[in-house]
Amino acid sequence: MTHSSRLLLTRCVRLSAGLALYGVCMALLLRAGLGADPWTVFTQGIAEKTGWSPGAVLLGVSVVVFALWIPLRQRPGVGTVANALCVGPFLDVALWALPTPHGLPVRALYLLAGVLGIALATGLYVGVGWGPGPRDGLMTGLAHLGLPLAVGRTLVEVSVLAGGWLLGGTVGPGTVLFMATIGPLVGYALPRLTLAPAEPRASR
């Protein structure tokens, strides 16, 4: 197997693992019932109102957000499309498989595992270098229009969090924990999981 083939295989495996882990960790946050990240709260709220599964809602939301990339002139990658199509099904499978925790200590463990796992999953799939997820791309697209990234991220996340809460999504201490820690956690994980092509060997 050539170097390029090995690198392609590694990227595919990491992308798949990252997206699967992301879906599982979203399910952990939902099962914990202590509050989740803004987009998961939004997904949960729409699911409460529509009766759709959270995975189906996430798929629909991802496609809509993906469409918003067009006026923002964002260019999707393979990872972007895979994120939009795959995380929702992984979420539904994980919700089906995971038992509902009873007792605050177990719920807290679900919450901590979900937050840490999402940071790891983000490092895995973004570190492949095939494009961010639809929601992350929306924020970077706003930044390209001149809006500071921190301001754009805050506006988007506060808006979806408020919308999700009004629709019946669960906001709680887990939401605060997620918003306070996910930036530093991803900042730690991403550089360590980013793949870079190896230098080609010089011919002799």
Rank of each mutant, 00 (worst) to 15 (best):
G79F: 00
R31K: 13
G172Q: 12
V171D: 07
M1K: 10
W52E: 14
S62K: 02
G131S: 13
L58D: 00
L72R: 11
G77A: 08
V24R: 03
A143P: 12
A67R: 09
D136M: 06
S159H: 08
L149Q: 14
G141H: 03
A47W: 01
M26V: 05
I46S: 08
S53K: 14
G117H: 03
R153A: 09
L72K: 09
C25L: 03
R192T: 00
T170E: 14
S159Y: 11
S16R: 11
C25W: 00
L147K: 10
S4N: 15
E48Y: 12
V93W: 14
P54N: 13
H144S: 13
A180M: 04
L85N: 11
N83D: 06
S203K: 15
G88I: 12
G103H: 13
S53P: 10
V24S: 01
G60M: 02
L95T: 03
M1V: 15
H102K: 08
A67W: 14
S159F: 01
V156D: 02
Q74R: 14
R73W: 15
I118V: 09
P71L: 06
L58W: 14
A20Y: 06
W52T: 07
W96Y: 08
V158L: 08
G55M: 02
V106G: 04
S5A: 15
L149A: 09
E157S: 10
L111Y: 11
L59S: 11
